[in-house]
Simulated scan of single mutants.
Amino acid sequence: MITGESGTGKELFAQAIHQASAYSSGPFVAINCAAIPKELIETELFGYVPGAFTGAKKDGNKGKFVQAHGGTLFLDEIGDMPLELQSKLLRVLQERMVTPVGGTNPIPIDIRVISATNQDLEKMIREKTFRSDLYYRLNVINLTIPPLRERKDDIPVLIDYFLDKYAFHIDKGKTRFTKSALQALQHYDWPGNVRELENVVELAVNLPEQEVDRHHLPEHITNYDNSHNYENSEFLTLEEMERMQIIKALRTFQGNITHAAEALNIGRTTLYRKIKKYNLVRLIDIGEGGGKNHEN
């Protein structure tokens, strides 16, 4: 299960997992559980046989599970799955068989299922709006994707990916961002995460210029001031403040645990434990004072 804020790129991660898996030669089929009307999601997922209901296609519909046979099914926004369908989804995952709506013959399926959500499913379980047995079935391996504002080093890589993607769509030569434009993009905190960045790159590719400068960017990005983000916001929890200080120290000392621990006035072991707690291992320098030395 992949968790993270809306727009952090959960589907991109799911596609990467698919491409690196034994199912990579099969299809990657994605469905957004929040985008489909409640009354249609069952037939979208499980399909239906001819004549299953008024208005059904004469040939029926395979459904996403059967379409993904031999590949990966990505269930985005799984927290929006209607409660009454969760038991049927659980049964399909357990039995690896799917019965179309209106049908009686189960169809065997061989797929990898990846789910994603931006909701607190454990809270939903306590509120009895999400089944605990389905949660534990899906949450075998959990990947939490940090928001883009906490992994700004990814911005140039993502920009290159989206530049190639949209340049190919409109058959345009390579667009490039100037250093000034890149600085503005890395200064911005991206409340819309990767999805917002993708929209900005798509806009840039559709400009007539091959080189995108700072003045080509939306004004809310070039005029952005992040100095007030925390001073004028609601109170943060102690854990949120601690996480922010650790991120600041690791970035200041380029991932060197020894120097960061000294600046925070805590021991290396304590800092490393907190780094793992807050999923910040990616910020550690692998050289002297970094994670590998600590573990060795």
Rank of each mutant, 00 (worst) to 15 (best):
Val101Glu: 09
Ile107Phe: 02
Arg96Val: 00
Ile107Trp: 01
Asn61Ala: 13
Gly63Arg: 08
Thr72Leu: 12
Phe130Ala: 05
Gln94Cys: 04
Leu121Gly: 08
Asp76Gln: 11
Gly102Arg: 03
Gly71Tyr: 03
Val113Lys: 07
Glu127Ser: 14
Asp76Ile: 14
Asp76His: 15
Ala116Asp: 06
Gln86Glu: 08
Phe130Thr: 03
Ser115Ile: 11
Val66Leu: 10
Asp110Gln: 15
Lys123Ile: 07
Gly60Val: 09
Tyr136Asp: 04
Arg126Ile: 13
Arg112Phe: 02
Leu93Ile: 12
Lys123Thr: 10
Phe74Val: 09
Arg91Ala: 10
Leu85Gly: 05
Ile125Gln: 03
Asn142Pro: 13
Ile78Arg: 05
Leu83Thr: 08
Ala68Tyr: 03
Asn139Phe: 06
Arg131His: 06
Asp133Ile: 14
Thr99Ser: 05
Ser87Phe: 08
Leu73Phe: 03
Gly70Val: 10
Asp133Arg: 15
Leu90Val: 06
Val92His: 02
Lys64Gly: 00
Thr72Ser: 10
His69Cys: 06
Leu93Ser: 06
Gln94Tyr: 06
Gly103Lys: 08
Leu89Lys: 08
Glu77Arg: 15
Lys57Asp: 07
His69Ile: 04
Thr104Phe: 03
Ser115Glu: 07
Ser132Gln: 15
Glu95Ser: 11
Ile78Val: 15
Lys128Leu: 10
Asp133Glu: 13
Ser115Arg: 11
Ile109Val: 15
Arg112Ala: 04
Phe130Glu: 02
Leu83Ser: 11
Lys58Cys: 00
Ser115Gln: 12
Ser115Lys: 09
Ala68Leu: 09
Leu75Gln: 07
Val98Asn: 03
Phe74Arg: 12
Pro106Ser: 13
Leu89Val: 13
Leu75Asn: 03
Glu77Ile: 15
Val140Met: 09
Lys123Trp: 00
Ile141Trp: 01
Gln119Cys: 14
Ile125Asp: 02
Leu93Tyr: 01
Thr99Cys: 07
Leu134Cys: 10
Leu89Arg: 06
Ser115Pro: 09
Ser87Trp: 00
Val113Gln: 09
Pro82Cys: 08
Phe130Trp: 07
Ile109Lys: 07
Lys64Phe: 02
Glu84Tyr: 12
Thr104Tyr: 10
Gly79Ile: 04
Tyr135His: 13
Lys64Trp: 03
Val66Arg: 15
Lys57Pro: 00
Gly60Thr: 00
Leu75Cys: 03
Ala68Trp: 02
Thr129Gly: 06
Asp120His: 15
Arg137Val: 09
Gly102Ile: 03
Gly79Leu: 01
Gly102Leu: 02
Asn105Val: 13
Ile78Leu: 11
Asn105Ile: 12
Gln119Phe: 02
Asp110Gly: 13
Phe74Ile: 12
Leu73Glu: 05
Asn105Tyr: 04
Gly71Arg: 06
Asn118Met: 10
Val101Ala: 11
Val92Leu: 05
Gly70Cys: 09
Glu95Asp: 13
